[in-house]
Amino acid sequence: MWSSIAKRKRPTAMPDFLHFEFMRNAFLAAILSSVACGIIGAYVVVRRLGFISGGIAHTAFGGIGLSYYLGLNPLAGIIPFSLAAAIGIGLLSRKAKIAEDTAIGAFWAAGMSIGVILIGLTPGYAPNLFSYLFGNILTVPNSDLQLIMGLDVLIIAMVWLFDKEFLAISFDEEYARISGLKTVALDLLMLCLIALTVVIMVRVVGIVMVIALLTIPAAVARSFSHNLYRMMAVGALLASLFSIAGLWLSWVFDLASGATIIVVAALVFLLNALFGAGKHRRTEC
């Protein structure tokens, strides 16, 4: 449907395509998800939690399978699965002394497998499966927008409440522990916030590409930021720029929206890395 609209009435200016409700929703989803992305992405990048975030996202596929099997809204399955993945990976690697990448790998594959099995057990064809793997920002219903907004508020509130503790465990976890902080609990809380961000991002770019939007905007923001909070703000701004630019390009050239957003982000990341490396060499001598 959407490609035929695009061909019949290819717009020349941005506001044109905002006449469609699904496009307005897509824009809102892009901007709202970028808020969570910028804030949580900053922690993911400075604490190098990219791989664990990928593990949480892929484990969440099991939740999608469960929702299909039970006939529920997929987000109803993703939320408990991603939270369980966050706590499970966190506890296994921090308490049971299992290497973190081993724990992540096990959850990652097990979550995907559960999803595949449950979808296979569900009678009939699973029509929207592809959109959860690779995202489809053009089909975000109003109810999901409300959920995304609610999760945004929750994430901002948690980060505001725990900012000095999160900064301490990110910068120097041992010192935080010596100072009397419950570092394992704080760590698990942060992983749960990553899980909730994953839930938000699944709508926009899908499970497979979540890591890109959790890391790229924050990584680019890092080169312009002297503190973590500025990094969050710049990261959120960049994430929304990438999403809107990607969305617009996907509309103009009739491409998959999630993938286009990621390609835009990756290009900026590469340019920044190349330019940044050059700048770094100059300042070094």
Partner: peptide, 9 residues
């Protein structure tokens, strides 16, 4: 023991 590139004053 920690990351020198951490954005913190």
């Amino acid at each position: 023991d920690f990351d020198r590139t951490f954005p913190i004053s």
